[in-house]
Write a protein that binds this DNA or RNA. Structure first.
Length: 483
RNA sequence: GGCGCGUUCGUCUAGUGGCUUAGGACGCCGCCCUCUCAAGGCGGAGAUCACGGGUUCGAAUCCCGUACGCGCUACCA
């Protein structure tokens, strides 16, 4: 049997893409690409109370940014559309009717009041909270009467009694449930919309989904889904329930305890490569020590069998390291757009810098940063003149003789014609020889003069990047200000 | 409360009965390199493999129980 796997990412449009959702999407994507299968995006918007304007568009654009491109989806089309559940309402209705005909589902006219009373009572007697199948005993006449009186109703799943339901989960192995513990789940709500349980089963079947890869929070409701597959007479897909992403306190990852939206991480300056790499490692490992991955390597190595069972805390320390690693592994031209956009959001948004200049700046700072925006914050001297000199560095590196030495050096520099790095270096060495000084006596105050600080790229790199004129100018200003 | 899942350094993890005095990575600390800061190299601290029983010549690895954590328990997904 060699069928093409078809998997899906089925988020509900809450307004943003949750990092847990990103992880689910990624694992689906990796599985599909690894097996030359199809990856489908389906929007589960069956809760009209939670409708958020523009949420779908936002989700799609964020997903697009991450590079998790799908083969079929709302904006992409495909043979099994529509891919938005709110546009498939009559499909669910027809299927619910089919279940009613088979006595596998039934109309329920119970009021919310009765339901909550029932629940309270069960809570009191410490019974399991379950619908009591009251409406299952309605006669056809009563049902018809209620229906023509337009009495609000839901359609419920008729869960059989005392039946063992087995799930063979790829990640967790065999899991058993007794149908006694299952509630007669609402399938169609009183507003005519389906619940997740009905919609996801119907759609997965109609869209020919072969593997359902989703978060562990769905494991408990899987027996209800299995029941539905059986009632419809459909083959079940393969199930794989992924471990949850956790807050630092080990509860399910949520807002309130930090950022959960992919957009937030993007805005903070995380590279999509780093985010994908990091999220892939949360719950998956190839069985070796490799930690730095590109997407194509993930696709190649990924396997559901090597997914962990236990939840993982979303701890950004390692994400930061991976971001720095991915920055170091990119060339300066690739990083240029990132710097440009960081610049646009900085105080230097009005200033002009050439691509050539910024590229040199990036090269000099690339391995000293965790975020591209730190090029600006950690080396502002590449973007503006020096306003402040680090007092600690002044204290440590600036002596009474320094102005004299630097003047000599400046004279030497002024002799240079279109100098390169080595020319600056040679000029400095020549000056120290003439003055009979150790090289440090010049190099440290020089760094202070041209950068205002004590840390950064090699001085000759800085000099070369800012150029001879600015170098001489800054030396002069430093002498004025610090003497 | 019920049902389900899980439990290896602070965190992410390797480990599928002997190769393990439990390996790697992040973070932390120290040393080296060095014009500074990084990067890099080397080293260190850090896990009685949740606990208790078994099975076995031998268990982090298999079985049972307990504890703890988490998830679900909606006309939310």
């Amino acid at each position: 049997m060699n069928i093409t796997p078809r998997v899906r990412f089925a988020p509900s449009p809450t307004g943003y893409l949750h990092v847990g959702g990103l992880r689910t999407a990624l694992f689906n994507f990796l599985f599909a690409r690894h097996h030359d299968g199809k990856f489908i995006l389906r929007i589960e918007d069956t809760d009209r109370n939670r409708f958020v304007d523009g949420a779908v568009e936002n989700l799609i654009s964020t997903l697009h940014w991450t590079g998790l491109d799908y083969d079929e989806g709302p904006d992409k089309g495909g043979d099994y559309g529509p891919y938005i559940q709110s546009k498939r309402l009559d499909i669910y209705r027809t299927h619910a009717q089919e279940l009613i005909k088979k006595d596998k589902a039934y109309y329920c006219f119970c009021s919310p009041e009765r339901l909550s009373m029932l629940r309270q009572e069960q809570k009191h007697t410490k019974d399991q909270a379950k619908y009591d199948k009251f409406c299952l005993n309605l006669t056809p006449e009563e049902i018809q009467k209620n229906l023509s009186a337009l009495k609000p109703y839901v359609i419920r799943l008729n869960v059989p009694q005392n039946q063992i339901i087995e799930i063979d989960d790829v990640i967790r192995g065999r899991v058993e449930f007794n149908s006694e513990t299952l509630d007669d789940q609402v399938l169609i709500k009183s507003d005519g919309y389906p619940t997740y349980h009905l919609a996801n089963v119907v759609d997965d079947h109609l869209m020919k989904i072969t593997h359902v890869i989703r978060g562990e929070e769905w494991l408990s409701s899987t027996p209800k889904h299995i029941l539905l597959y059986d009632f419809f007479g459909w083959n079940r897909p393969v199930f794989a329930h992924l471990p949850l992403l956790l807050n630092p306190d080990r509860s399910k990852l949520s807002k309130r305890q930090g950022d959960v939206a992919v957009e937030d991480y993007r805005a903070k300056g995380y590279l999509k490569e780093a985010l994908i790499n990091f999220v892939a490692l949360l719950g998956w490992n190839a069985g070796d020590d490799k930690e730095f991955y590109y997407m194509n390597e993930l696709i190649e190595k990924f396997s559901l069998a090597s997914v962990n069972k236990a939840g993982a805390i979303f701890n950004t320390e390692k994400l930061n390291w991976l971001n720095a690693e991915h920055i170091r592994n990119k060339n300066s031209v690739e990083l240029l757009p990132e710097l440009r956009s960081a610049l646009k959001n900085s105080v230097y948004d009005e200033s002009f810098f050439s691509d050539e200049y910024l590229t040199k700046v990036i090269d000099s700072m690339k391995e000293r940063i965790t975020f591209v925006s730190e090029v600006i914050t950690k080396s502002p001297y590449f973007f503006a003149e020096i306003e402040n000199y680090d007092p600690d560095v002044i204290k440590k590196r600036w002596t009474v003789e320094t102005p004299v030495y630097l003047s000599k050096l400046s004279e030497e520099f002024s002799l240079l014609n279109n100098p390169g790095k080595e020319d600056f270096e040679n000029a400095l060495k020549k000056t120290t020889e003439n003055l009979n000084l150790g090289i440090g006596k010049l190099i440290h105050p020089l760094r202070l003069a041209v950068s205002g600080m004590g840390a950064g790229p090699g001085v000759y790199d800085i000099l070369f990047i800012i150029g001879k004129e600015k170098t001489i100018d800054r030396i002069k200003k430093a002498i004025e200000k610090l003497s």
